[in-house]
Design a protein around this nucleic acid. Structure first.
Lengths: 183, 183
DNA sequence: TGTTTATATATCACTTATGATATATCGCAA
DNA sequence: TTGCGATATATCATAAGTGATATATAAACA
């Protein structure tokens, strides 16, 4: 149940609505955490009943009330305790793309190559995104908010994303070569 | 809902029980797919009612019946259709370790370093596992079963795992250096 | 002798996550 | 002028996943 910490993490940077958290989530952490609005709104309410965040409703004409959430001192404490707690084990992850490749032994070469080439294209696109858009968003956010220390961490994580995508791309290129030479 | 395909994938290699699938899962795909027995057993039953696998119960003294599952032609077809279908988008993944680092801007250096060093240790252990144990298991399985084409795919996926862990290790080492120099 | 681990399946409660749909307005483009 | 995307929140049903517990035996271990 780390979504609560992701939400607290964003609210630790600035007060905002669930809708804005979702936008930030999509723009920055989508590589390592994601959630839909239907999960974010109820979780925020839960955090509110636990006293970790407070909400200020601002009624708008026509539109539903805008609920701006703010982290409380108790929320900050919970967040920091979680952040400081060292990871005790590597949480297992899921990757349907690798699952497909792993079991592709019984497919004919052409089908495997189609699969590998599609994944290569997707990975190249993602690599370019990390090198460009993601990098820019971080730079601009740091410039706009002055959060340089936070920016260092964001940039670190971005660099890993880039390194991983690069590893994917190089690996897929080699894999395609290898499969081409298969009988 | 890819667990069904993971199960079909294993049954495509050989008939086996849910318990044996779990062992194989833990030994090979745990990096990119995992599941508990409480998820595997009901899913196998579901696949059975759909006619994608058949079960042969073998009563044992004392122990519960051993249900050995076998993939059907219909099951093979479903599996191959899924394997051949190119990934249409990169499925989002979750990584609590990166989430912690991403939001660590408000922590003091010492706490961040503890976090990074713990994760570095875990990643080094995993890297050694890919280089040693995982590699061996693949070699031995290929030698025992003669599944050389499948073995090529398993080895490919293992190589990516190794490359990714190596990227993690190098990145964490650099990250520790960078955080040490932070004011 | 008692405890843990392995074999083998199963159920139950609960949490987490996804997809669909609803409401309501504004601006923009086809 | 019709429809789509953005803003903003919410509910509902279902699916997927986790943790705990139960049964039953044998072997390994301390």
């Amino acid at each position: 149940m780390s979504l609560r910490y992701a939400l607290l993490g964003f609210l630790g940077l600035d007060s905002m609505t669930g809708y804005e958290i979702k936008k930030n989530l999509d723009q920055s952490t989508q590589l390592f955490w994601h959630a839909g609005l239907n999960q974010i709104y109820p979780t925020l309410k839960k955090l509110e009943t636990e006293g970790l965040v407070t909400a200020e409703a601002e009624s708008q004409d026509g539109k539903p009330d805008k609920r701006t959430y703010t982290i409380t001192p108790a929320g900050s404490e919970v967040l920091h305790a979680w952040l400081a707690e060292p990871l005790s084990f590597l949480p297992p992850s899921k990757n349907a793309g690798l699952l497909k490749i792993f079991f592709s032994g019984s497919l004919e070469n052409a089908a495997v190559l189609r699969q590998l080439e599609t994944q290569l294209e997707l990975r190249r696109k993602q690599l370019r995104r990390y090198e460009g858009e993601t990098r820019q968003v971080i730079e601009e956010t740091v410039a706009a908010t002055g959060l340089t220390r936070e920016g260092t961490m964001w940039e670190l994580v971005r660099e890993l994303g880039e390194a991983h995508e690069r590893a994917y791309v190089e690996w897929l290129e080699r894999a395609i070569e290898k499969v081409r030479q298969l009988p």
